[in-house]
């Protein structure tokens, strides 16, 4: 069975956006702020992959765990040095969000400087590159297709187990629900926050490491996909990790497939407007149902009108 390359690209992209959206939602849940630097962690993943596979000449898949660790440590350092300090000082959500924007600018600039340094030392193209040719081929399909789908599914399953079965995961959910109550119950809120920032940073960099295997990358491509991440997270309702899985996958798929579909209908010029698709999702969700799919699901299952609509469609709601 051979899928068309376009669909494969869409699936790879959707997997990346899904993983990033999960991380974005987890940050929003635990720290109550949208982390604008989340896309830039992915940029670090891209450059870890580039350094390992192009400069050291190793298999690009070796870089994935390294990217996870690098992204996780960046997330932890960011929380320890900036976000945690500002939280301890009692800053509000607006100040914290501005600080994530500042971190985003700072990290992107560091990444650019790193890329220029690599260029001046190794004399290769480091600003615009694609690592597709370093990928392995399995049955005529690039390996990243299987790997990204596998990582996405495994991440979702592991995360579900982690959040429902392990002690740290449960305490993380408790902190997300109510930090005050959690600290009363003896949960170390600060340490739980650190774990959550490590996990989100690591997942973001892992998704970033997959990015250059199929798509053209530059130091700011991580910061560029933040709109898609936010759209995916917002579509999922911003307050549920499971919503983010659906939302991220939907936005990622539709961004590529819808652009292609529209290009076939209206002409090639539509491609320039591709960044508008996640923005369209964003604004549509905010105007129609600010709580996203989660809110829509609750509306369908609990309100009278929603149940009527479902019964018209022939679906019966229990309870």
């Amino acid at each position: 069975m051979l899928l068309p390359p376009l669909l494969m690209a869409a699936i790879v992209y959707a997997c990346e956006i899904t993983i990033l959206s999960i991380g974005f939602t987890m940050t929003y849940l635990t720290a109550k702020i949208p982390n604008f630097a989340h896309g830039t962690y992915a940029g670090y993943g891209i450059y870890v992959n580039y350094t390992i596979s192009k400069i050291f000449g190793l298999n690009p898949y070796i870089s994935f765990p390294v990217a996870f660790l690098v992204g996780g440590s960046i997330g932890t350092i960011v929380y320890m040095l900036v976000i945690g300090v500002l939280t301890k000082m009692g800053s509000g959500a607006i100040v914290l969000t501005i600080s994530t924007i500042a971190i985003d600018i700072f990290l992107t600039a560091i990444l650019y400087i790193y890329a220029y340094w690599l260029r001046s030392v190794y004399h290769t193209y480091t600003i615009q590159f694609i690592l597709k040719e370093r990928d392995i081929q399995l049955w005529g399909v690039p390996g990243i297709f299987y790997v990204s789908l596998g990582i996405c599914i495994v991440t979702v399953i592991l995360l579900h187990t982690f959040l429902t079965k392990t002690r740290i995961g449960v305490s993380m959910r408790a902190v997300a629900e109510d930090p005050e109550l959690a600290s009363v119950l003896g949960i170390d809120v600060y340490r739980t926050q650190l774990y959550s920032w490590f996990l989100t940073g690591g997942l973001a960099a892992l998704a970033g490491a997959m990015y250059p295997m199929w798509f053209q990358s530059n130091p700011s491509s991580g910061a560029f996909i933040i709109t898609s991440i936010m759209a995916g997270s917002l579509l999922g309702g911003m307050e549920s990790v499971y919503g983010a899985i659906v939302g991220g996958f939907g936005v990622g798929l539709s961004e590529i497939l819808l652009t292609n579909r529209l290009q076939a209908t209206f002409g090639i010029w539509v491609g320039e407007y591709r960044p508008l698709i996640p923005m369209f999702f964003l604004i549509a969700v905010l105007l129609i149902q600010p709580r996203g799919l989660q809110g829509a699901y609750e509306w369908l299952t609990t309100s009278r009108k929603g149940i009527e609509l479902l019964s018209k469609l022939g679906i019966k709601v229990e309870g």
């Binding site: 900036v82 500002l86 501005i98 600018i105 650019y112 220029y116």
Partner: peptide
């Protein structure tokens, strides 16, 4: 320098913002 100065400027922007927010709220 081996990189364009504008990135140094961006670093300055980010660091200044964070430093001001922490030390001079």
């Amino acid at each position: 320098l081996f990189f364009p100065i504008s990135y140094f400027e961006q670093i300055l922007l980010g660091v200044l913002l964070i430093v001001v927010m922490i030390f001079r709220p």
